[in-house]
Design a protein around this nucleic acid. Structure first.
Length: 203
DNA sequence: ACGCTGATGCTCT
DNA sequence: GAGCATCAGCGTC
């Protein structure tokens, strides 16, 4: 669990508008406490979802029981269920009372978790929640509540950040609100940069 | 490598 | 009843 100073710096980053809070989260480490083990993953891909201006955002239709956490204090967790099989993790940002959020789309295992998990275990929002065992039971909890079993730690930001259109939406699909670390193999829809080549024989 | 499709169930109209 | 902030598997090139 982060100490008070680290917590304050993280909250300072999250209290800003989604377009700033989203890239702020890149490089930060999600720590998931589970019975018997702790998983640490570095966030490498996120998307910003705005409020009333953004028809793709869940908050666009107004408050409901499901979307209520979006209006919570910065750092409030919002998890929703989609396509009958998957959960997606969001972090509410902006001051309490505003519904902006950041979707965590992908992360790469770090520390001990790098040896336990496949590099692609958290590549994509559905896989990330499956690997971290997150579901709608976590929605409405706060990252800095010990009871959440999920917290955030500071870590160095990526050297470069790339932006692009958000994935999998129909409305407002052109806005460049996706942010990712282009060097990470854990980014979803990752296309290998050099054309694929068969391993070259040396010797 | 790339594109399409089915699975699956909750949420809101 | 339609749509959905997904993913794995399959078919085609």
């Amino acid at each position: 669990m982060p100490g008070p100073a680290e917590r304050r710096r993280l909250l300072d980053g999250l209290v800003r508008p989604p377009v700033e809070a989203a890239p702020f989260l890149l490089g930060k480490v999600l720590v998931r406490r589970l019975p018997g083990r702790e998983l640490s993953v570095r966030i490498v891909e996120v998307e910003a979802y705005l409020g009333a201006d953004d028809p793709a955002a869940h908050a666009y239709r107004g408050r409901t029981a499901r979307t209520e956490p979006l209006w919570g204090a910065p750092g409030t967790v919002y998890v929703y269920f989609i396509y009958g099989m998957y959960f997606c993790l969001n972090i509410s940002v902006e001051p309490e009372g505003r519904p902006g959020c950041v979707l965590v789309r992908a992360a790469e295992p770090v520390g001990d978790s790098a040896g336990l998990l496949a590099v692609d275990a958290c590549r994509g929002p559905g896989r990330l929640c499956r690997t971290l065992a997150l579901d709608t039971g976590h929605s409405g909890r706060h990252l800095f509540d010990a009871a959440a079993g999920l917290t955030l730690r500071e870590a160095p930001p990526p050297a470069r950040i790339q932006t692009g259109p958000r994935v999998g939406i129909r409305r407002a699909a052109e806005r460049p609100l996706r942010f990712f670390d282009p060097t990470s193999p854990a980014v979803s829809l990752h296309r290998p940069l050099p054309p694929a080549r068969r391993p070259r024989r040396t010797r």
